[in-house]
Amino acid sequence: MSTRLDEAEVARLVPGLTLALPRLPQRGRVGEVRASSAGSAMELHDFRMYQPGDDLRQVDWNAVARTGDLVLRVRQDEVSPRAEVVLDGSRSMALSPRKAAAAREVALLTVEVGGRQGLSPTLLWGGPRSERVQGLACRAALRGAEFEAQDDLASALGRLPPLRPCGVRVVVSDFLFETDLEALCARLSRGASALFLVQVLDVEDLEPTGGEGARLVDSESGVALEELLTDSVLAAYARRFAEHQRALRSAAVRARGTLLTVSTADGLRAQVAGPLRALFVAGGGA
C-alpha cells in the first residue's frame, strides 16, 4: 500500500473497468417534474393517470377515447450520461497519508474510468477553495489536492458549484461527521441518475488503538477530549460507529444511492475487487 497517490496502480486498473451505469430509467416524480425531451428518441415506458401539471402533449388521446380517462404516456428519456466525482476536502480525509491517498485514488480511478467511457468526468473538489475541473485537469487537480477544509462535506456543499443533473455521481468521503444524513443523501442524489457514496475509512477509524490515555482532537474543529482508551471506551466507540454506519446506509438507500465502504488497510486493487465492485464493473471493453 502506498501512502501517496499511486497513479501507476490506477493506470493499471483503468483498462479493465467500467463504471456501472444505471439500468433503471429516470423517473419523473408525480406532479413535480415536467416530462421533457420529446422526440424520436423517446421510448414508451409506461402509462399512468394524468395529474395536474403534466404535459398535455403526452396524453394518449386514443386511450382517452377508449376508456374515457386521461391516460398519460410515460416515456424514458435517452440522456447523455456524465460522471461527476465529489471529493470531500475536509481535514479528516487526511487523518493518515494512506487515507488521503486512498481517497485520491478512488476519485482518480472514477475519473479515469469515466473518461475512458466518454462520460465527461467532472471533479468537484470540496477543499478550502472549492473548484470544478474537467477532463485531463482532474488528474493534476487530484495530485495537488490537500485536505485542509475545516468543515465537513455537508457544509462544503454550500460553497461548491451546483451539481449537474443526469449523471453518475460518485461522492468520496469518510462521512464521519454529525449532520442530518437523510438530508445530505437526498441532496446528493438530487438530479443524479445514479449515486455512489464511497466511504473511505482509515484503520484508526475502524479500529482505534487503545491502551493509554489520549487527548483526542477533532481533525476539523480542533475540539479536544481527554479519554483513557480503555476497552470499555473503545467498545462504546465501536457501538456508536456501527450506529452511525447503519444510519448512513439507511439514508443512502432512501436516496436511491449505494454506500460503498472501503478500508485503507486494503489496496486499491482489493478495494475494486471488493467493496467497490458495485461501482466498477469488470470488462473494460464494454
Binding site: 487523518l95 477509524d205 489520549a214 483526542l216 482532537v217 477533532d218 475540539v223 462504546a236 452511525h244
Partner: peptide, 18 residues
C-alpha cells in the same frame, strides 16, 4: 502532565463522546 498528554487526531470526535 496528564493534561498535556500526546494528542491524537481523530476523524469524528462525536463518536467518542458519551
Amino acid at each position: 502532565l496528564r493534561r498535556r498528554q500526546k494528542p491524537v487526531v481523530v476523524s469524528a470526535l462525536f463518536l467518542w463522546r458519551t
